[in-house]
Computed example of a mutant assay.
Amino acid sequence: MDTIKILLGMITALLVGALAMSWKNFRQEVRDTPKKELGEVQRQIAEIEQQRKLLKEEKDRMMLGMPLAQGQKAPSEAPAIPEVKPQDVPDTGAVFEDDVASKETTPEIPDKPAVPNAEERAKAIAATPAVGKIVQWVEDPNLGTFATLQVIDAAAVKADAVLSVRRGTGILGKLKVSEVEAAEAVASPTAVFGDVKPKEGDEVIVEP
Rank of each mutant, 00 (worst) to 15 (best):
T12H: 09
R31E: 08
A13M: 09
R31M: 06
M10C: 14
A13E: 08
I11M: 05
A13D: 08
R27G: 14
F26N: 15
M21E: 08
A20E: 02
R27H: 12
K35Q: 05
T33C: 03
W23Q: 10
L14T: 13
T33R: 02
T12F: 11
L15F: 05
R31S: 10
Q28I: 08
L15T: 07
D32L: 03
L15R: 00
N25M: 12
K36E: 09
G39V: 14
A13W: 03
T12M: 12
A18E: 01
D32R: 02
A18T: 05
A20Q: 02
F26S: 15
K24G: 14
V30P: 00
V30H: 11
P34W: 00
K36S: 06
Q28M: 10
K35L: 07
M21F: 12
R27S: 15
I11K: 01
A18H: 02
W23T: 08
G39P: 09
T12K: 10
L14Q: 07
A18K: 00
V30I: 14
L15G: 07
L14G: 11
E29Q: 13
M21I: 13
M10A: 13
V16M: 07
S22W: 06
M10Y: 13
A20K: 00
K36V: 05
G39F: 13
R31F: 01
L14W: 09
E29D: 12
T12R: 11
A20R: 01
L15V: 08
G17E: 02
K36T: 05
A13Q: 05
D32E: 02
L14R: 03
T12W: 09
N25H: 12
E37G: 03
K35C: 04
L38F: 04
L38M: 08
P34T: 01
A13C: 10
L19I: 06
V16S: 08
T33L: 03
N25E: 12
V16Q: 04
A18N: 04
T33E: 00
L15Q: 01
Q28D: 12
L15H: 00
A18G: 09
L15M: 04
W23N: 08
K24P: 06
I11V: 11
V16A: 10
P34C: 02
A18I: 03
E37F: 04
N25C: 09
Q28H: 11
V30L: 14
G39T: 14
V16Y: 03
R31Y: 02
R27A: 15
Q28L: 10
F26Y: 15
G17S: 04
A20S: 01
M10L: 14
F26M: 15
M21W: 11
D32F: 00
E37V: 04
T12S: 14
V30W: 11
E37M: 05
P34V: 00
S22K: 08
A18L: 05
T33I: 02
E37W: 06
M21H: 07
R27C: 11
W23K: 04
A20I: 01
G39A: 15
L15D: 01
G17W: 03
M21S: 10
N25G: 10
K24A: 15
G17P: 02
R27M: 12
R31T: 08
Q28C: 08
E29K: 12
R27Q: 15
V30N: 13
G39C: 12
T12Q: 11
N25S: 11
E37T: 03
W23P: 07
V16L: 09
E37Q: 04
V30F: 09
